[in-house]
Amino acid sequence: MRDADTPPQDPADDRSHSAALTPQQRADLIRAAAAEVRDRVQAWRDNPNWRNTPANSHRYETTIGVIDALGQLPAPDTKEAVASLADAVRPVIVEWRPSRPGPEQAIYAAVERLRRTIDTST
């Protein structure tokens, strides 16, 4: 049984082993996971229950800014370039920890998927 502070469990990841992926495919996985985080954070911000506290505003602005900047980085052609994409989104991972249920918990689950994607892509 899952309590309100436990993120939902994801099904087993059936993606190809990361060693078989090109740098571009790895980057695509990172960008897709980051886009999911961005979408969830934007939905949280657009929710009528959004509280415009300094902490919430900081997490929102950091997440949106970092992920938007990720879109401006060039397509990677080396493992090192993929690592630079991963480094670019790490501030998002630091911002989100398990907290309250609801939209923030969904964001945390998406951030955990991003973290796992980075860990397997670099």
Rank of each mutant, 00 (worst) to 15 (best):
L73K: 08
A55M: 15
I30A: 09
A43N: 03
R2Q: 04
Q25K: 13
R40M: 04
D3H: 02
T62S: 13
D5R: 05
E104V: 01
Q24N: 13
P23L: 05
L85M: 05
S99C: 08
D46M: 01
I107N: 01
G71H: 09
V111G: 08
T6V: 08
I67N: 11
Y108S: 03
A4W: 05
S84I: 02
H58K: 15
E95G: 07
A4E: 07
Q9H: 11
A20D: 10
S18L: 12
A27V: 07
T122N: 06
R113V: 11
L114K: 13
D77M: 00
S16P: 14
D5W: 06
S99N: 12
P103V: 00
R15P: 12
R59I: 07
S16D: 15
E104W: 07
A4S: 01
A32S: 15
R59T: 12
V82S: 05
A32C: 11
T120H: 10
L29S: 10
L73Y: 05
P98C: 06
R59V: 07
V94G: 13
N52K: 12
T120D: 14
K79I: 00
H58V: 15
W44T: 00
P101Q: 02
W50A: 00
N52L: 15
G65W: 06
R100P: 00
T6L: 02
D46K: 00
P76H: 06
Q24V: 14
A27P: 10
A34R: 06
D3Y: 03
V82T: 07
P91I: 05
Q9N: 04
T122E: 13
T117S: 13
I93A: 10
N52A: 14
T6P: 00
H17R: 10
T122I: 15
K79F: 04
T117L: 13
R97E: 12
A81P: 03
W44F: 00
I30N: 12
T53R: 15
A32Y: 05
T22K: 07
V37C: 09
A83Q: 05
Q9V: 12
S121Y: 09
A32R: 15
L114I: 12
L114N: 14
